[in-house]
Amino acid sequence: MENVLEVRNLTKSYSDFRLNNVSFTLPKGCIMGLVGENGAGKSTTLKLILNLIRREEGEVKIFGMDNLTQEQSIKEKIGVVFDESSFPEHMHAKDISLVMRNIYKTWDQSLYEDYLGRFALPPQKKLKEYSRGMKMKLAIAVALAHRPQLLILDEATSGLDPMVRDEILDIFLEFIQEEDNSILISSHIISDLEKIADYITFIHKGEVLFSQPKDLLLEEYGILKCSHEELERLDKNKVIGYRKNQFGVEALIRKANFKDQRLIDPASIEDIMLYYSRGVRK
């Protein structure tokens, strides 16, 4: 399968944080969710991909092109949405199309107007009178209107109510129907990603803990329920994280390591993430 995005060994240090050797690959036609706590390095990774900040090491290829040497031709073909509206507040949706038409060669005005209609966004209303959900939908309409092949979304659904989020997720699913299109979306709302993502990349303290197809993840991990005594007898190296309560212990494990155990519940992506990041208390 062809890859839309290849990230290799990305490294970037700040005084209090280091993104360390981040690597993952997004196959064409797929949605990848970038998950992790606030400050885990999701945004830093996206900024490095977009060349908004300088990397110390590593390599990024988008559509098979190097993200530094062929930056402009790559950016013609990607749509980006950040977690906040990026337009001056006195502008309105109609103004924005005037700007974008002169930036993207492939800007499709009628498609943009379609989206405005569909999202019920008044074209002549100032952005400062838009609600947060409306601003986000506008940003998505703008990102889609030049017909990109890759959408990069940084926390595009956070701070929105469930209805709007659901509406937005539907648009992403619709976008992905086109077989050349792909999405990289970072979010800490795991349930959203669970709904739409094909791949999950989990970043924890600046490092990639895993980057796998979602279905494999759900298959691979399980929640083992046992008593406190049983936990003591388990091979601790095989327990990824656990949580104790008065009735017993719930531990995140790889099912393959515990074939003889019966009481294994399915683990959600959220479980996997929580146990990984919180539960490493061996």
């Binding site: 013609e76 906040e84 001056p88």
Partner: peptide, 18 residues
């Protein structure tokens, strides 16, 4: 001032704008 408030530069540079 408007650019800074709306973080326009970050957005502009993620478009095909050198």
């Amino acid at each position: 001032a408007y650019d800074e408030k709306s973080r326009w530069d970050k957005y502009a540079l993620s478009m095909p704008v050198p």
